[in-house]
């Protein structure tokens, strides 16, 4: 495990951050892909599948992040988040809804008393290209409106340019702006390009105070690849072994089917361990996934495949 006895602190220079991050064990891309592919062959059926589906539903961050998002759209999605299957009250609610910061107030109002949390993307999502003051203002506004979770993006340009200090400082500043809200740090692994970078960005974010590390904005392909998720799970596993603090992981983007979701849960189970099989430590950022989970849930209960017309499109 990396030497976390002296993790990089706020005063760390780019040189010392570089020395630390580049001193992490390398990641062999082909090996990671093969491990993920091997775990993808796990067969999760019958009762185990039922438990997995319900857990996956409880881990969903039901998301809408469109320019066309409106209060009506957010209210409808919030209703679905609290009661995913109108025909089956045993279907659990999702973990949270995830919206742009200007929609936080609408979502908070709509979800009052449901236990479903409100997460907001912030910091000039998805590109992150904005002045720091704007990013912080974005964050503070979302928190002030009642978001209890903030999904920030890192400055990938700074990361790729080797300005690790800038990335680190932005995270610590946003973390401070979050106050008691949980901070999810989006690495946008598709833009980081290499497995080594995913590992380095994971550790950088963890040391800077992330409560969660998240793969992607959903606006860049590839998004939540099995290998990126696996590398991030290794980071939180190793960080826990070194410090006793558990950081969460959130793959987001491109997770559309129950099979995708269950494969992610298998990764969690066999890489980070069963302790992470908890909505407090693992989330699935998704929109269309929820209906597929519900359909599979019905299939398990009734034995026959339902059609999409039976599920709401909100």
């Amino acid at each position: 495990m990396p030497d976390t006895a002296t993790p990089p602190g706020p005063a760390a220079s780019n040189a010392s951050l570089r020395a630390y991050l580049h001193g992490l064990p390398g990641v062999d891309e082909v090996g990671v892909r093969e491990r993920a592919a091997d775990l993808a062959t796990r067969s999760v059926k019958t009762a185990a599948k039922g438990r997995a589906i319900d857990l996956a539903i409880r881990m969903v961050d039901l998301t809408t992040l469109e320019g066309a998002d409106s209060p009506g759209k957010v209210r409808a999605m919030s209703a679905k988040a609290a009661h995913p299957d109108p025909a089956d009250p045993t279907a659990p609610p999702v973990a949270a809804v995830c919206v742009y910061s200007d929609m936080v107030a609408v979502a908070v109002e709509a979800l009052k008393g449901t236990g479903v949390r409100v997460a907001s993307v912030a910091t000039a999502f998805p590109s992150g290209r904005a002045p720091m003051e704007a990013k912080l203002a974005d964050t503070r506004r979302a928190v002030a409106d009642g978001a209890t979770e903030i999904d920030m993006v890192i400055d990938r340009g700074a990361f790729l340019a080797g300005d690790y200090r800038k990335v680190f400082e932005e995270i610590t500043a946003v973390k401070e702006a979050c106050a008691t809200a949980h901070l999810k740090v989006i690495l946008e692994t598709g833009e980081l390009a290499t497995c080594d970078n995913v590992r380095r960005a994971s550790w950088l974010a963890i040391h800077a105070g992330a409560d969660f590390i998240k793969t992607s904005t959903g606006k860049v392909a590839p998004a939540a690849t099995p290998q990126a998720t696996l590398i991030m799970l290794e980071a939180v596993r190793d960080h826990y072994a070194a410090t006793g603090r558990r950081v969460g992981v959130k793959p987001a983007g491109g997770i559309r089917t129950t099979k995708d979701a269950i494969r992610k849960l298998v990764l969690v189970n066999e890489v980070a361990g069963p302790a992470w099989l908890d909505p407090d430590l693992f989330r699935l950022g998704a929109s269309s996934l929820l209906n597929d989970l519900l359909m599979q849930r019905t299939k398990l209960a009734t034995g026959s495949y339902p059609g999409p017309d039976y599920y709401t499109l909100d």
Partner: peptide
């Protein structure tokens, strides 16, 4: 409870 979730059911 999380421990039980991934006692994968037999898949012969």
């Amino acid at each position: 409870m999380p421990e039980q979730i991934f006692e994968y059911a037999p898949a012969p």
